Simulated assay, not measured.
Amino acid sequence: MKNVLVTGASRGIGRAIATAFAADGYRVAVHYASSRPDAAATLDALPGDGHVLVSGDLADPQQARAIAETAADRLGVVGTLVNNAAVAPSAANIHRVADASYDEWQAAWRETIDVNLLGASNITYCVARALIASGEPGTIVNVGSRGAFKGEPDYPAYGASKAALHAFGQSMAIALAPHAIGVASVAPGFVSTERQADKLGGAHGDAIRDQSPFGRVGTPEEVAAAVLFLASPGAQWASGSILDLNGASYLRS
């Protein structure tokens, strides 16, 4: 059953993941929250036929359910879910504990947790329940972050949300294994998406690249290749794993 729902697929890592699945013969539900033009560009560039757009705000539990239901209505049972959508670190949501006001602190945590953790957990629930009802096997892959282990002092909500997403994935791996549903996560380091272009081209670009002994940052396509593998039937025994994708820039014991 080669139907996949990729959340946050309008650009960057999500677009690369959608493209990799489409190239492998999947029909893809391209989810976006607000940027329909970017999502439409992703959809138009996908190889193959039968792909669809699905919109909705994952921070809203009812919209999260609607996203899963719409994808299933348009594709059939969703056999693979990729939880990629996230509130990512930016100048707009920096919240250093020594600098942020209490209101800014609260806003950053609520916005981040609502999407990165609760949104992912809600859509996972909906897709998993439909898979269980169908009796078909399936896979769920969570896109976490190196920051869950390395720490994010300027964006602690982001680091915490990704650590929680990893833990959630491991809980689901145990809970869903009896239903032949595998669950795994990837933990990318710095990736050269459109959003990071200014950083990589700026004064600190070399320092960012030098975090890895390879002297570069990762690409969206490298993340997508790992996600595609973890979603494959041959990777079922990797269920419960968290795959580091950081070019040896951070090694955890």
Rank of each mutant, 00 (worst) to 15 (best):
K2R: 15
V4F: 04
V4Y: 03
A9H: 08
R11Y: 15
G12W: 13
A20W: 12
F21N: 04
F21Y: 02
A22L: 08
A23N: 08
D24V: 01
D24N: 14
G25R: 05
A29S: 10
A29C: 10
H31F: 07
Y32P: 09
Y32L: 15
S35A: 15
R36D: 05
P47S: 14
P47Y: 12
G48K: 13
G48I: 06
G48E: 11
V52L: 04
V54R: 09
D57F: 01
L58M: 02
P61K: 00
P61T: 05
I67H: 05
A72M: 04
R74E: 15
R74Y: 03
R74Q: 15
L75G: 11
G79A: 15
T80N: 02
T80C: 14
N84E: 06
A88F: 08
V97E: 05
W105V: 00
A107W: 05
W109G: 00
W109R: 06
W109A: 02
E111H: 13
N116I: 00
L118N: 10
G119R: 03
A120R: 09
N122W: 03
N122Q: 13
T124R: 10
C126S: 12
A128L: 14
R129M: 14
G144S: 12
G144R: 01
A148E: 01
F149M: 06
E152W: 12
P153F: 04
G159N: 08
A160T: 13
S161D: 08
S161E: 00
A163S: 07
A163V: 07
H166Y: 00
G169I: 11
A173T: 06
A173R: 04
H179I: 09
G182N: 00
T193A: 09
Q196E: 14
A197V: 14
H204C: 00
H204M: 09
H204N: 09
R209Q: 02
F214C: 08
P220T: 09
E221W: 07
V223L: 11
A224F: 09
A225V: 02
A226R: 03
V227F: 11
L228T: 12
G234D: 09
Q236V: 06
L245T: 12
N246F: 15
A248W: 13
A248Q: 11
S249N: 04
S249C: 06
R252K: 15
R252Q: 15
S253K: 13
